[in-house]
Design a protein around this nucleic acid. Sequence first.
RNA 1: GCCAACAUAGCUCAGUCGGUAGAGCAGUUGAUUCGUAAUCAACAGGUCGGCGGUUCGAUUCCGCCUGUUGGCUCCA
Length: 664
Amino acid sequence: MFGLPITSPPKNASLVYDQPLYSPPKNVATFSNLYTVQRSFALRKGYRHLLDKKTIVRSCVRMRKQTVDKNSQLYKYRHSLAHVMAQAVISYFKDAKLGDVRLGIGPPIDTGFYYDFVLPRALEAEELKEIEQRMKKIIKEKQVFERFVLPPQEAVKFLEERGENYKLELVQEFIEQGEEISFYTNGPFTDMCEGPHVEKTNDIPFKAFKLDSIAGAYWRGDEKNIMMTRIYGLAFETPEELALFERRRKLALERDHRKLGRELELFTISEEVGKGLPLWLPKGTAIRDSLEALARETEFKYGYDRVATPHITQSKLYHMSGHLPYYKESMYPPMVLDDEEYYLKPMNCPHHHMICKSLIRSYRDLPLRLAEYGQVYRFERSGELAGLLRVRGMYMNDAHLYCDESHVREELKKVMEMHKYYYDLFGLSNYWVRLSVHDQNKDKFVDNFDEWDKSVNMLREVLTELAIDFEEIPGEAAFYGPKIDFQVSNVVGREETASTNQLDFTSGPRFQLEYAGADGQTRYPYIIHRAPLGTHERFISFLIEHYGGAFPTWMAPIQARVIPVAPEFFEYADKIRMRLREEGIRAESDLSSDSFSKKIRNGTIQKIPNLLIVGGNERDKEEVTQRRYGQKEQETQGLEAFVAWIKDEIRLRRNSRPVNPLEA
RNA sequence: GCCAACAUAGCUCAGUCGGUAGAGCAGUUGAUUCGUAAUCAACAGGUCGGCGGUUCGAUUCCGCCUGUUGGCUCCA
């Protein structure tokens, strides 16, 4: 993908755990929230004029989270099912004499469809069964879908008569855009809609859909608007595909990092400490340490210098950085001491800038590359927290590269090369790159649009030159500059940013990071903010799911466990353990009173990459029998040969990870 | 923060149509010494998330709070 001459990635990377639940097509932000996708959809379609948040969200006929071809049967099934469901919901409430239902939007999505309603009362999950029955009835009725177009004023009148005030809001905008207003009628139900639909309801596969869940959703994705009730449905072409999807979803849940984190004793979150503030258990900490060692080593090779900064900082720094106006709501409120306000730091950048300020004088001091794994705190809203994926305290693989304009491209390329190295190392291939740029919102982005354009161009050029596929999304930039984000999705298909890189033209002047250029003129550096490993919290949560908890030896909390076949061999087993620890290997010996096969079972359940079986045969010849995770074939070799092998495995960070036959 | 659901032993889960609770695994103890995914037995373990209300009596019904989950919004 990158086409870079670079250290070759490990070969035998096993991708069995890397099957995405849904496959994102190239360049399509399949997992993005609706808003983001609507924007990217708009961009791809050339609707740049629609990029304003207010005007972009359209009815079910417009932009949607949908990667299936619009004219395909599957698209029509899903779209038609949304209408059928709306009809069923309306009749359900009407028959119960509970009052009127108002319609929001009801588009197809990648796994089926949804429809947003304003309901007279909350709907319970059990009631979905009844609605599903009504849907089946409607399908059997062979209702015909008929399209008709109304002139603007009649369309308005039509919707007014039905009290569809949300649809009315949409139609007003369609009219302003000069668009044709079309409707679809099937049976007693009519909806303003662009289509296309199936010809009649019984074209829809009868057993390949299912109502899935109820959720809240703001009207037009704006939290200032009312909260509607969204019903999600699954829909595929065949019952087999539906069953397959459900089976895969269930399987994916087995790899959920919250479940594995508890089972494998990696981390815990205590109510007493606070939500979003995870506690890392010894085994999770071992993983963190492995990652940090990787980062330290890699950054050293790339010429970074390590620095360290405090957790709290006076408000004046954040006024200087601009965080206080732009970022305040994501920061913990200040502690006030001796008339000074101290904030928990939400980012490491301002501190690094101050370090830069004390170091640089001339262009000869550049590029300056400052690196730190830094603890930061952000006040995420409670509903947004999720396991390790979204937390309030996080440890970030941060670094800032201060460079002269002439260095920017080259430094950016090296940063991208580092990403390539990391992602290959982990065997990550299911990710996509997003170029997050500004829009014209002056409240959200610093007001210097010439610099914005220039910076965006530099990023675009670098990505293009390296042949990295990317999708450009307006409005997603940091307040101080555009970003290149690496997006991944977790087991349940939620998209998150795993790595982020920003080009910052704002902080140089803001922090007065002056240096003398070759021509003697005063200049300000461009700053590249980069975090290829993101934060431990998010990155490790992602790796837990990626590996299904079975980490390659170099990262595994326990790298080897020695299992004696009988108590007679405890002494030999423990001798091996000590020999391995002498070499810095995280090794254990199981000297419990469990039976031999129980010990094997325990070691396997804990997904320890290497179990070393020792009995009389091994002891007599100073050997070990290695049983690798998920692999039936074993290998008996001399102790020192094994020590050499595992040291290599760790040093080279091999991603060899055989499949557990019980999981396959 | 918003909409909704959920909260019983360390974990996974039963259960009580209102009369203060069980199972499996894990744990402890004892026996067992075993060559590749669970040896046997005994024991211990819970203010049934917290606080109020209704009731003779609440883990069960109601309200509030806290936390979690699924969405929305926001984001590393």
